[in-house]
């Protein structure tokens, strides 16, 4: 385990160095990455003066939700780059995954170390900026408990979406091409929980409550941070299950991943 971790850091080092080789290109990539978030959020922020609220939430409150989600998704997108289904599908096609099987190292760790998209820092930075911008618009009554819980919320989202990436990557053992529907859950799910959940059609909200429990990742914690009442009358514990939901999703995906590897070893490519 210790050895695997040491190698992971070395593999990360390889990734970072090769990405920083072309400083200017890297810089532009980071800027482009953060602009995506910036422009998308700006389009919402700019129309707020005409509308004042989004389903009763002020711009500051939406920014809180939005920033927290983008920050977490960005971290996930960077750490789990190796499992990005479209990238991983390519690795299967090229046979690069076989090369990983030939090394005497834990496979999962190797996939983590096979790609680390540093330019996602742009996304993470902009997510953080939007989150901080929210603090200038609204006064959040921060308590030590809230501050302590905040990193766990980020952790929950990173695990949850990381789990979706792993599940998507595992599916490519069967399909080779990454399947488009996964994007609905990953990118679509991210966009979905970046906005207050009570604005969605009932069926959509239920889908993302009971089938894919994404509502507990960001919305419920935000209700707690912002001292807002729960419109759906869930038990009072609801805001605090985010890390649990994330970990469970990740564990389930890892189980599926190991099942997928066994399938791959019985059929090959």
């Amino acid at each position: 385990m210790n050895h695997a971790l040491t190698i992971y850091w070395r593999l990360l080092g390889v990734q970072l160095r090769s990405q920083l080789q072309y400083r200017l290109a890297f810089f532009f990539d980071v800027v482009a990455m953060s602009s995506t978030i910036f422009l998308e959020f700006a389009s919402l922020a700019l129309v707020f003066q005409r509308f004042e609220t989004l389903g009763g939430w002020t711009l500051g409150e939406v920014a809180f939700l939005y920033g927290l989600e983008e920050l977490s998704f960005g971290i996930m997108d960077m750490v789990f780059s190796g499992f990005d289904p479209s990238y991983f599908g390519q690795e299967i096609r090229r046979g690069s995954f076989d090369q990983l099987l030939l090394r005497p190292l834990n496979l999962t760790m190797q996939v983590f170390g096979s790609k680390f998209v540093l330019r996602r820092l742009g996304k993470i930075g902009m997510g953080l900026a939007v989150f901080l911008y929210a603090q200038t618009l609204i006064t959040v009554t921060w308590t030590p408990a809230k501050l302590l819980y905040l990193p766990f919320v980020v952790f929950g989202m990173v695990c949850f979406f990381g789990g979706l990436f792993i599940a998507g990557a595992t599916i490519t053992f069967w399909t080779v091409e990454s399947i488009e529907v996964m994007n609905i859950f990953t990118y679509g799910g991210g966009y979905l929980i970046a906005h207050p959940m009570h604005i969605y059609q009932t069926w959509l909200r239920r889908l993302f409550t009971y089938v894919v429990p994404a509502i507990f990742l960001n919305y419920y914690p935000a209700l707690y941070f912002l001292n807002k009442p729960d419109p759906f009358n869930f038990p009072a514990i609801a805001p605090f299950v985010a890390p649990l939901v994330g970990i469970l999703a990740l564990l389930a995906s890892l189980a599926f991943w190991h099942f997928g590897i066994r399938f791959y070893q019985s059929t090959g490519n």
Binding site: V14, R17, Q21, R94, D98, Q99, L102, P104, L105, N106
Partner: peptide
């Protein structure tokens, strides 16, 4: 893991080395 530690393999069309690393650093890794 224990098995592949004792074998070597070269698949002509693919490389086991890291694309962006100098050869010596790949070997050290």
């Amino acid at each position: 893991q224990a098995y592949v530690a004792r074998i070597g393999a070269v698949f002509g069309q693919r490389t086991t080395l890291w694309w962006d690393l100098p050869v010596i650093e790949s070997l050290e890794l």
